[in-house]
Amino acid sequence: MDIAASLLAEAIKAGTPLLFATLGEVYCERSGVINLGLEGIMTIGALTGFATTFITGSIWMGFLAAMLAGGVFSLIHAFASISLGVNQTVSGLATVMLGTGISSLLGKRYVGLSLRDRLMPMTIPFLSEIPVLGGFFRHDPLAYAGIVIAIVMWYVLFKTRIGIIIRAVGEKPEAVDAAGVNVYLVRYICVFLGGVLGGLGGAYVSLYYTPGWREGIMMGRGWIALALTIFSLWNPIGSVLGAFLFGGVEVLQFHLQEYGVPASLLGALPYVVTIIVLTTSSFGFMRRKLGVPAALGKPYRRES
């Protein structure tokens, strides 16, 4: 395997957990809810996935349980921010602390354990032999699934009626409400979906990328995914590019170290881009162009 192909393959692997989490957050924010709790939700997913696989011996059961746990856990944030209409930033941060805290408490007995069931890569014959691009075709099923899910989510968001409703809820919830759509339900579903995908991303880390459970296992991936959501301009296809680019930056650090390129500089890149996007989007006219959901972060209260 030549270095370029291996780099590409690794970028995809490193980017996959970020991709899942970002896709979920894109839907969540498109519907008008910021979920800062991703780091906590991913940690819950990582622990649930690991524990389930450890107990049942099946890695697919682990992924399933992680998705469910992530979804259910994110309902806490949904309840607080949608039904109670509290400040979403505060509720999101609380979700992070709760998620990481609960996981460290319940996860104590799983530290240092190892799984026997492993995810095997599916190498696509012929295609994987192409130089450089062959790196695309040597992956575990979930990395492929991530790309497929992204395309489906893009299609749904921009080409279907459901997508119009979701986006409208994030833009002008009053209008959608007047048209007879249940704004609360749409937001609940989007937050739940975000939790499901966040849990999946977490489990990808604890079951495949760096198998094992330990406190702080997410290493800030939840925060990177939040940055990526903005970086991708709330677009699932953009998320794919962003996630793999950031994954690539992570992986590239160690290839460039030999040539004296400081790792910390590359590591800061995602955040620099995020700041640029946020700064630009603070100008009113840019907001629209960039696709910032107008009602993002604003609790919806039905006028009676």
């Binding site: 395997m1 270095i3 291996s6 990328y209 760096t210 992570e250 992986v251 650090q253």
Partner: peptide
């Protein structure tokens, strides 16, 4: 762990 794994992978690829 993440970066340790990535460093190991970078080494293996050379």
């Amino acid at each position: 762990p993440t970066r340790a794994r990535e460093a190991a992978q970078a080494l293996v690829s050379i």
